[in-house]
Protein backbone atom coordinates (compact mmCIF):
# COMPACT_ATOMS: atom_id res chain seq x y z
CA UNK A 1 0.00 0.00 0.00
CA UNK A 2 1.21 3.38 -0.88
CA UNK A 3 1.43 6.08 1.73
CA UNK A 4 1.92 9.77 1.30
CA UNK A 5 4.53 11.07 3.66
CA UNK A 6 4.69 14.51 5.05
CA UNK A 7 6.51 17.02 2.98
CA UNK A 8 10.16 16.65 3.78
CA UNK A 9 12.52 17.63 1.03
CA UNK A 10 15.67 16.03 2.45
CA UNK A 11 13.99 12.75 3.06
CA UNK A 12 12.68 12.48 -0.44
CA UNK A 13 15.65 13.55 -2.49
CA UNK A 14 17.51 10.48 -1.32
CA UNK A 15 14.83 8.28 -2.79
CA UNK A 16 15.86 6.36 -5.85
CA UNK A 17 13.84 6.15 -9.02
CA UNK A 18 13.47 2.43 -8.48
CA UNK A 19 11.60 2.97 -5.28
CA UNK A 20 9.20 5.32 -6.96
CA UNK A 21 8.35 2.79 -9.63
CA UNK A 22 7.93 0.05 -7.07
CA UNK A 23 5.54 2.20 -5.16
CA UNK A 24 3.48 3.07 -8.19
CA UNK A 25 3.06 -0.54 -9.10
CA UNK A 26 2.10 -1.58 -5.61
CA UNK A 27 -0.79 0.91 -5.75
CA UNK A 28 -4.04 -1.00 -5.76
CA UNK A 29 -5.75 -0.52 -9.07
CA UNK A 30 -9.45 -0.55 -9.67
CA UNK A 31 -11.21 -1.08 -12.94
CA UNK A 32 -14.59 0.52 -12.71
CA UNK A 33 -17.19 -0.92 -14.99
CA UNK A 34 -20.89 -0.92 -15.54
CA UNK A 35 -23.51 -3.32 -16.73
CA UNK A 36 -26.93 -2.40 -18.02
CA UNK A 37 -29.76 -4.88 -18.21
CA UNK A 38 -31.53 -3.76 -21.37
CA UNK A 39 -34.53 -5.97 -20.61
CA UNK A 40 -35.21 -3.90 -17.51
CA UNK A 41 -34.77 -0.53 -19.17
CA UNK A 42 -37.97 1.04 -20.39
CA UNK A 43 -36.55 4.32 -21.54
CA UNK A 44 -37.93 6.55 -18.80
CA UNK A 45 -34.96 8.91 -19.09
CA UNK A 46 -34.29 9.25 -15.35
CA UNK A 47 -30.61 8.38 -15.87
CA UNK A 48 -30.16 11.08 -18.50
CA UNK A 49 -31.70 13.73 -16.28
CA UNK A 50 -29.85 12.66 -13.14
CA UNK A 51 -26.62 12.69 -15.15
CA UNK A 52 -27.18 16.21 -16.45
CA UNK A 53 -28.03 17.49 -12.96
CA UNK A 54 -25.04 15.79 -11.37
CA UNK A 55 -22.54 16.91 -13.98
CA UNK A 56 -23.79 20.45 -14.48
CA UNK A 57 -24.67 19.87 -18.10
CA UNK A 58 -26.69 22.93 -19.18
CA UNK A 59 -30.17 22.82 -20.69
CA UNK A 60 -30.47 23.24 -24.44
CA UNK A 61 -30.53 26.49 -26.33
CA UNK A 62 -33.50 27.05 -28.59
CA UNK A 63 -31.51 26.05 -31.67
CA UNK A 64 -29.96 22.98 -30.10
CA UNK A 65 -30.88 19.69 -31.72
CA UNK A 66 -29.99 16.05 -31.37
CA UNK A 67 -26.69 16.64 -33.12
CA UNK A 68 -25.52 19.66 -31.15
CA UNK A 69 -26.95 18.75 -27.77
CA UNK A 70 -24.90 17.56 -24.82
CA UNK A 71 -26.13 14.33 -23.33
CA UNK A 72 -23.40 12.42 -21.54
CA UNK A 73 -26.01 9.77 -21.03
CA UNK A 74 -28.30 9.42 -24.02
CA UNK A 75 -30.99 6.81 -24.33
CA UNK A 76 -31.65 5.55 -27.83
CA UNK A 77 -34.72 3.63 -28.86
CA UNK A 78 -33.64 0.97 -31.32
CA UNK A 79 -36.42 -0.81 -33.18
CA UNK A 80 -36.12 -4.29 -34.62
CA UNK A 81 -36.80 -4.50 -38.31
CA UNK A 82 -40.31 -5.84 -37.95
CA UNK A 83 -43.46 -3.99 -38.88
CA UNK A 84 -46.41 -3.26 -36.58
CA UNK A 85 -47.59 -5.25 -34.64
CA UNK A 86 -44.55 -7.56 -34.65
CA UNK A 87 -42.38 -4.55 -33.93
CA UNK A 88 -40.23 -4.53 -30.86
CA UNK A 89 -37.72 -2.04 -29.66
CA UNK A 90 -35.07 -1.77 -27.06
CA UNK A 91 -33.92 1.26 -25.15
CA UNK A 92 -30.17 1.56 -25.08
CA UNK A 93 -28.54 4.01 -22.70
CA UNK A 94 -25.37 5.05 -24.51
CA UNK A 95 -22.50 6.92 -22.92
CA UNK A 96 -18.72 6.71 -22.79
CA UNK A 97 -17.93 3.01 -22.90
CA UNK A 98 -14.60 3.55 -21.13
CA UNK A 99 -12.54 1.62 -23.67
CA UNK A 100 -9.53 -0.01 -22.07
CA UNK A 101 -7.50 -0.97 -25.13
CA UNK A 102 -6.25 1.48 -27.76
CA UNK A 103 -8.84 3.91 -26.48
CA UNK A 104 -9.71 5.81 -29.67
CA UNK A 105 -10.13 9.24 -28.10
CA UNK A 106 -6.91 8.95 -26.11
CA UNK A 107 -4.96 7.88 -29.17
CA UNK A 108 -6.04 10.76 -31.32
CA UNK A 109 -6.03 13.65 -28.86
CA UNK A 110 -3.28 16.10 -29.85
CA UNK A 111 -3.47 17.83 -26.49
CA UNK A 112 -3.21 14.92 -24.09
CA UNK A 113 -6.53 16.12 -22.78
CA UNK A 114 -7.82 12.56 -22.50
CA UNK A 115 -6.17 9.77 -20.63
CA UNK A 116 -7.00 6.58 -18.84
CA UNK A 117 -6.83 7.22 -15.15
CA UNK A 118 -4.14 4.87 -13.86
CA UNK A 119 -5.94 4.12 -10.61
CA UNK A 120 -9.50 3.63 -11.76
CA UNK A 121 -9.41 2.84 -15.46
CA UNK A 122 -11.79 5.72 -16.06
CA UNK A 123 -11.21 7.55 -19.33
CA UNK A 124 -10.81 11.07 -18.04
CA UNK A 125 -11.36 14.18 -20.07
CA UNK A 126 -9.80 17.45 -18.99
CA UNK A 127 -11.86 20.15 -20.68
CA UNK A 128 -9.37 22.84 -19.69
CA UNK A 129 -6.76 21.20 -21.83
CA UNK A 130 -9.04 20.60 -24.76
CA UNK A 131 -8.54 22.83 -27.77
CA UNK A 132 -11.80 21.83 -29.39
CA UNK A 133 -10.54 20.09 -32.52
CA UNK A 134 -13.17 17.37 -32.07
CA UNK A 135 -10.88 14.70 -33.43
CA UNK A 136 -11.92 12.51 -30.50
CA UNK A 137 -15.56 12.90 -31.44
CA UNK A 138 -14.82 11.62 -34.88
CA UNK A 139 -12.79 8.77 -33.46
CA UNK A 140 -15.30 7.63 -30.85
CA UNK A 141 -17.17 4.59 -32.17
CA UNK A 142 -20.03 5.23 -29.77
CA UNK A 143 -20.75 8.91 -30.48
CA UNK A 144 -20.40 9.38 -26.77
CA UNK A 145 -18.50 12.67 -26.84
CA UNK A 146 -20.14 16.04 -27.01
CA UNK A 147 -18.93 19.45 -27.97
CA UNK A 148 -19.86 22.70 -26.28
CA UNK A 149 -21.02 24.74 -29.23
CA UNK A 150 -22.06 27.53 -26.91
CA UNK A 151 -21.41 28.77 -23.45
CA UNK A 152 -23.47 26.99 -20.85
CA UNK A 153 -26.69 28.81 -20.01
CA UNK A 154 -28.72 28.57 -16.83
CA UNK A 155 -31.26 30.94 -15.37
CA UNK A 156 -29.77 33.07 -12.60
CA UNK A 157 -31.44 31.02 -9.92
CA UNK A 158 -30.28 27.77 -11.43
CA UNK A 159 -26.68 28.96 -11.31
CA UNK A 160 -26.92 28.75 -7.53
CA UNK A 161 -28.17 25.17 -7.90
CA UNK A 162 -25.13 23.80 -9.68
CA UNK A 163 -23.49 20.77 -8.21
CA UNK A 164 -20.42 22.10 -6.35
CA UNK A 165 -18.49 18.91 -7.06
CA UNK A 166 -18.29 19.24 -10.85
CA UNK A 167 -16.89 22.24 -12.71
CA UNK A 168 -18.99 23.59 -15.57
CA UNK A 169 -17.32 23.57 -18.97
CA UNK A 170 -16.82 26.47 -21.31
CA UNK A 171 -17.64 26.94 -24.96
CA UNK A 172 -15.37 25.18 -27.41
CA UNK A 173 -14.41 22.07 -25.50
CA UNK A 174 -15.42 18.44 -25.64
CA UNK A 175 -16.90 16.61 -22.69
CA UNK A 176 -18.22 13.18 -21.85
CA UNK A 177 -19.18 10.73 -19.14
CA UNK A 178 -16.50 10.02 -16.57
CA UNK A 179 -18.50 7.66 -14.34
CA UNK A 180 -19.38 10.63 -12.13
CA UNK A 181 -15.80 11.10 -11.10
CA UNK A 182 -16.87 13.94 -8.82
CA UNK A 183 -18.60 11.33 -6.70
CA UNK A 184 -15.36 9.35 -6.46
CA UNK A 185 -13.71 12.50 -5.11
CA UNK A 186 -16.48 12.82 -2.56
CA UNK A 187 -16.23 9.17 -1.60
CA UNK A 188 -12.45 9.40 -1.26
CA UNK A 189 -12.54 12.48 0.91
CA UNK A 190 -15.16 10.88 3.11
CA UNK A 191 -12.94 7.83 3.51
CA UNK A 192 -9.95 10.09 4.12
CA UNK A 193 -11.81 11.97 6.85
CA UNK A 194 -12.09 8.67 8.63
CA UNK A 195 -8.44 7.91 8.03
CA UNK A 196 -8.95 5.33 5.35
CA UNK A 197 -7.71 5.16 1.80
CA UNK A 198 -10.26 2.58 0.80
CA UNK A 199 -13.63 3.94 -0.18
CA UNK A 200 -16.92 2.38 0.74
CA UNK A 201 -18.32 1.07 -2.57
CA UNK A 202 -21.74 2.39 -1.53
CA UNK A 203 -20.36 5.92 -1.49
CA UNK A 204 -19.26 5.79 -5.10
CA UNK A 205 -22.33 5.17 -7.21
CA UNK A 206 -22.74 7.19 -10.42
CA UNK A 207 -25.88 9.29 -10.70
CA UNK A 208 -27.42 7.14 -13.44
CA UNK A 209 -27.06 4.00 -11.35
CA UNK A 210 -28.47 5.69 -8.29
CA UNK A 211 -31.43 7.16 -10.13
CA UNK A 212 -32.46 4.18 -12.26
CA UNK A 213 -35.94 3.34 -10.98
CA UNK A 214 -35.74 -0.12 -12.53
CA UNK A 215 -32.35 -0.90 -10.99
CA UNK A 216 -31.21 -1.82 -14.48
CA UNK A 217 -27.65 -0.56 -14.03
CA UNK A 218 -24.97 -2.24 -11.95
CA UNK A 219 -21.73 -0.46 -11.22
CA UNK A 220 -18.59 -1.57 -9.49
CA UNK A 221 -14.99 -2.63 -9.59
CA UNK A 222 -14.29 -5.27 -12.22
CA UNK A 223 -10.99 -6.14 -10.54
CA UNK A 224 -12.75 -7.02 -7.32
CA UNK A 225 -13.82 -10.62 -7.89
CA UNK A 226 -16.46 -10.45 -5.19
CA UNK A 227 -18.24 -7.40 -6.56
CA UNK A 228 -21.73 -7.73 -7.98
CA UNK A 229 -20.59 -6.53 -11.38
CA UNK A 230 -17.75 -8.98 -11.84
CA UNK A 231 -20.24 -11.78 -11.18
CA UNK A 232 -22.92 -10.27 -13.39
CA UNK A 233 -20.77 -9.92 -16.51
CA UNK A 234 -20.22 -13.66 -16.56
CA UNK A 235 -23.82 -14.22 -17.66
CA UNK A 236 -24.18 -15.71 -21.13
CA UNK A 237 -26.42 -12.88 -22.28
CA UNK A 238 -23.79 -10.27 -21.56
CA UNK A 239 -22.33 -8.39 -24.47
CA UNK A 240 -20.57 -5.16 -25.33
CA UNK A 241 -21.27 -2.77 -28.14
CA UNK A 242 -18.96 -3.03 -31.13
CA UNK A 243 -16.73 -5.50 -29.34
CA UNK A 244 -15.27 -6.48 -32.73
CA UNK A 245 -13.28 -3.24 -32.69
CA UNK A 246 -11.21 -4.64 -29.87
CA UNK A 247 -11.31 -1.53 -27.71
CA UNK A 248 -12.36 -3.57 -24.68
CA UNK A 249 -15.04 -1.26 -23.31
CA UNK A 250 -15.72 -1.49 -19.59
CA UNK A 251 -19.44 -1.01 -20.08
CA UNK A 252 -21.37 -4.23 -20.50
CA UNK A 253 -24.94 -4.84 -21.51
CA UNK A 254 -27.27 -7.72 -20.96
CA UNK A 255 -30.33 -8.85 -22.84
CA UNK A 256 -32.20 -12.09 -23.21
CA UNK A 257 -33.28 -11.09 -26.71
CA UNK A 258 -31.03 -12.44 -29.45
CA UNK A 259 -31.77 -9.62 -31.88
CA UNK A 260 -30.63 -7.07 -29.33
CA UNK A 261 -27.34 -8.88 -28.84
CA UNK A 262 -26.81 -9.06 -32.58
CA UNK A 263 -27.68 -5.41 -33.00
CA UNK A 264 -24.81 -4.49 -30.71
CA UNK A 265 -22.29 -5.35 -33.40
CA UNK A 266 -23.95 -3.07 -35.92
CA UNK A 267 -23.06 0.58 -36.02
CA UNK A 268 -25.33 2.52 -33.75
CA UNK A 269 -27.24 5.17 -35.62
CA UNK A 270 -27.83 8.57 -34.18
CA UNK A 271 -31.35 9.16 -35.37
CA UNK A 272 -34.32 7.19 -36.51
CA UNK A 273 -33.91 8.94 -39.83
CA UNK A 274 -30.61 7.23 -40.39
CA UNK A 275 -32.17 4.02 -39.28
CA UNK A 276 -34.93 4.11 -41.80
CA UNK A 277 -33.28 5.77 -44.74
CA UNK A 278 -29.82 4.32 -44.26
Amino acid sequence: MHNLRSWNVENNTSKGLENLIMETISEKKSQYGMMIDLDRCNGCGACAVACAVENNVPPAYQQTNTRTGITWMRVFEIPNDEQFPQSDSVFVPMFCQQCENETPCVTVCPQNAVEIDPLTGIVGQIPQRCLGCRYCMAACPYHARYFNWRDPKWTDGMKLQLNPDVAPRMRGVVEKCNFCHGRLHTARQKAAANGSEKIDPNDYVPACVESCPNKAIIFGDLEDGSSEISQAIKSKNTFRFLSRLGTEPKVYFNSGRAWVREMAEQALTRTKKEEIYG
Binding site: G45, A52, P59, A60, N65, T66, F76
Partner: peptide
Protein backbone atom coordinates in the same frame (compact mmCIF):
# COMPACT_ATOMS: atom_id res chain seq x y z
CA UNK B 1 -40.77 20.22 -16.05
CA UNK B 2 -37.28 21.55 -15.61
CA UNK B 3 -35.56 23.02 -18.68
CA UNK B 4 -32.99 20.26 -18.23
CA UNK B 5 -35.58 17.83 -19.61
CA UNK B 6 -34.38 19.10 -22.99
CA UNK B 7 -32.00 16.17 -22.67
CA UNK B 8 -34.95 13.89 -23.40
CA UNK B 9 -37.14 16.06 -25.58
CA UNK B 10 -34.81 18.14 -27.66
CA UNK B 11 -31.26 16.86 -27.44
CA UNK B 12 -32.24 13.23 -27.91
CA UNK B 13 -35.20 11.49 -29.42
CA UNK B 14 -36.26 9.66 -26.31
CA UNK B 15 -39.42 11.72 -25.89
Amino acid sequence: ISPILSKLFQESELR
